Computed example of a mutant assay.
Amino acid sequence: MNNLITPAEFQSAKDIGHKLDEKKINSLIEMAQSTDLKELLSARFYFDLLDNQNEENYQDLLSGCTFQFLGVNYYQDGLKALLCDYVMAKYVLQVNTNFTPFGVTIKTSENSEPVDRNTLKDIAVQNTQLAGSRFEIIKLYLDTNWDKFPNWINNIYSSEVQPTERTYRLRKIS
């Protein structure tokens, strides 16, 4: 997988301590990209972004920039910051969890006590909400700069046909 951020970038963006489990963080980055980010951006633009992430056009989108909309200056934090929020939401729920041949265990030490699961869920929700707030401004940036990003399908100038309305069928399970 072509990750947009590295574990070191994640560590510098979020307060996760000094010891870095790169294997675990890389899998969380991949998970957040494949689920959360791809859902926000649409598959078409997501894969376009992965293919062109080193292009100059995409650097402001990834790292953040100032832009103007209707005479007002805005600052968007960039997709890397957004991705760090989603990774953090997943990280806090899994940081102390280990999968062993004997089952799932929680790391503890003599001088520590595991944090309550509800507290960790609250931190995860806060990071997800922060990501949502960041994306509002990033979406405005994408909509404003639609000509730089022709594969951005969620903008109002898209020539792409929008998906038809979904229908749900409920069945009684007996």
Rank of each mutant, 00 (worst) to 15 (best):
N98L: 15
Y75G: 06
F69Y: 01
Y46R: 15
D77Y: 10
K24D: 08
T35E: 06
T97F: 00
N57D: 14
S63L: 13
A8L: 14
K107A: 12
K107N: 14
S34R: 12
V104F: 01
Y74H: 11
F69W: 02
Q94C: 03
L70P: 00
S34I: 00
E55M: 06
A89F: 05
F10A: 12
K24S: 11
Y46S: 07
C65R: 04
Q76G: 05
D36W: 03
F69Q: 01
E22Q: 14
T6S: 15
K38P: 00
N73P: 00
L28K: 03
N57A: 13
K80C: 08
T97V: 14
L37I: 13
A32E: 01
P101S: 04
L70N: 03
L4A: 04
Y58L: 09
A13G: 13
S42T: 15
T35Y: 10
Q53S: 08
S34W: 00
D21F: 10
K90E: 14
N98S: 10
F99A: 02
L83Q: 03
L37W: 01
P7A: 12
D51E: 15
N98R: 14
E56G: 03
K14R: 15
E55S: 15
L40E: 08
F102N: 12
V95G: 00
Q11A: 15
Q94Y: 00
I106A: 11
L82C: 06
S27R: 03
L50V: 11
E30L: 07
E30H: 01
T35S: 15
L70Y: 01
G103L: 06
F99H: 04
T100L: 05
E39W: 05
N54G: 12
